[in-house]
Design a protein around this nucleic acid. Sequence first.
DNA 1: GCAAGGTC
Length: 862
Amino acid sequence: MKTVLMVAEKPSLAQSIAKILSRGSMSSHKGLNGACSVHEYTGAFAGQPVRFKMTSVCGHVMTLDFLGKYNKWDKVDPAELFSQAPTEKKEANPKLSMVKFLQVEGRGCDYIVLWLDCDKEGENICFEVLDAVLPVMNKTHSGEKTVFRARFSSITDTDIGNAMAHLGEPDHNEALSVDARQELDLRIGCAFTRFQTKYFQGKYGDLDSSLISFGPCQTPTLGFCVERHDKIQSFKPETYWVLQAKVNADKDKSLLLDWDRVRVFDREIAQMFLNMTKLEKEAQVEATSRKEKAKQRPLALNTVEMLRVASSALGMGPQHAMQTAERLYTQGYISYPRTETTHYPENFDLKGCLRQQANHPYWADTVKQLLTEGINRPRKGHDAGDHPPITPMRSATEDELGGDAWRLYEYITRHFIATVSPDCKYLQSTISFRIGPELFTCSGKTVISPGFTEIMPWQSVPLEESLPTCQRGDTFAVGEVKMLEKQTSPPDYLTEAELITLMEKHGIGTDASIPVHINNICQRNYVTVESGRRLKPTNLGIVLVHGYYKIDAELVLPTIRSAVEKQLNLIAQGKADYRQVLGHTLDVFKRKFHYFVDSIAGMDELMEVSFSPLAATGKPLSRCGKCHRFMKYIQAKPSRLHCSHCDETYTLPQNGTIKLYKELRCPLDDFELVLWSSGSRGKSYPLCPYCYNHPPFRDMKKGMGCNECTHPTCQHSLSMLGIGQCVECESGVLVLDPTSGPKWKVACNKCNVVAHCFENAHRVRVSADTCHTCEAALLDVDFNKAKSPLPGDETQHTGCVFCDPVFQELVELKHAASCHPMHRGGPGRRQGRGRARGRRPPGKPNPRRPRDKMSALAAYFV
DNA sequence: GCAAGGTC
């Protein structure tokens, strides 16, 4: 029997589609990556009995990146990223080993049906799947067609059945348009990001971001926030005047009337109107009206609306809301949370969904009433053809979910119930009054039937006092007429919800990526989230956007994305050649890039105002080996040392503290050593700022401290302080921390292993002798006379930390000793490993004698 | 270390 492999875009869809096509009779098992399942059943295909294997990927299989060597920031000119730098497709998520999984499942299959989402990204994933699977599928010799594409717009029996009955072919042009987008985003984003970051990081010491990124989505997103900031800044309040009148209704109630002219901006004119009205005793009713109005029930819920409400009403950021929704989905509480659709499919079981909520402690009454009196047909929304709107899938209580998960679930459920509830009906009454020559109005709303606002109380029409019944010609006594002086007020910072709306409107990002872009501009310190989830741009954010405005406003305008997308659509429609469009667009942006680089001074002028140059930042810490002047330690990320005399910057390890190391110097370059430490309980090691950036020996890499330095005689080096192979990792060596006394520590120079050894020892030295059993370096320890743990009055002892019976009692390594390679491996492991890594054999000179620094460097870069 | 797009 032949086999048909079928692939959907995500595990949940593979399951639903298989369920529909197999009419529920399938057998399922997990695939080798643990994320995707395979659902098997038998059926008919191309007029023959076959075995179907339905499975899925997890989004894109591949991702685009530059070849490895083009990812070295200090070796590649960002301008090269526009054309010279070659790209390659890498597996998008190596942990899932998706290619291998597809090949295991696809091996020996005869046909493949692609059930990827019916959008451009899905079309592109079709070809990623084919690239992986076709080579291992059975080959036909008859030229028979073996690759099929299923096109569907909803996950319903009819739609899926129809798709299966009318299989087509994957659309290569659509896939190509995505390839083009990927390459453009990569090349443009990385080129600008690297250039900006390097340029400004090399000049300023107090930038509040270690990465100054640029992207066709994130930059316009920031642009919206700064645009609002500019409006606020340039806002000039204007004074205006309004007339306010009160008339006496029945008893001691009075009505507040609004002036029909609303407001005037000239005090004298306002005063004139006041004079014409303030002496009037009566207000005459000119007209009355009562209109029944309706507030519409909401449309079915899609992702973007959920994110808006989560932000504005629940105070949950989009990223957090999305994560919470995903958890609710995987736990089976809600339907798939990423959808653009606001229209329920025709066969959607609204009543069934409602029935699940009929006994809920919070809304049982409303639901039961709807079920007995009949539900209202939902409003017609937009069908994007992706997934049904977000709805609850089963009932859940506050105790069960708790916290934000509950709050989001509650909102989703109330929203769903609202979509099948009646509209809210209210009566809008207005009375027009004349006081002297001027017209005033009073209006009020009274609810007739609350409809959906019962389940969404935050949407209710506010209670207002009802207006008196009256008719044209009636008169009321005027209580007072007064003139109020007011000022126009500036808009407030953009709320997250408003930003989401703007992004959606301009096509910046997708429902799934909008939260990511917003998160990005927060993490890069371009904006901060203020109370009410309003986004306030930082100095850095403002300077960047103003700089783009100055140099090339297109870089920050929302049209940058749509213009490119227009071009990409031409590829998708087969109206333009992929290579031509890609080449042309890259050329445009390459020119923009060069113009930007040439004009960067314009942005720099703005930068200077907010940030301080490197030379003026930081505090003097250690001496430069070249000029012997103090270099300044710049703590702001990325932390580094800057020598203003030599105009050189030396990067340092991040996430830790840096101190001067006793004014000791590196024997190779005369730089003063600094001591890095990860905290009081963690490890620490000295490093030479120059060697850390320019490795002195061939077997060293950038970013190595003295604990990895292979200098044969320097007292701080691995060669002198290394003890033996790490007890946990493969390649590390345990190195004595010379600063750790009197509670001495040894730490691995590769992994996080730290072990405490001797307390109350005033000196610990690594001996040149080695252990006969395990080849580790012996330690020579002098204990404190009064507190010596040694038998008798001994204060000095030399031995191996792993094997010496006296030391084993004192060393934390004793529990680790049994795991030490020497002890766990059996006889065969003695040679080659152990201490030989870190230390030269005793008595033998190191065969790699260091040459002088410059020739060592020259050799290194060969 | 960089983009944006899928999804886990």
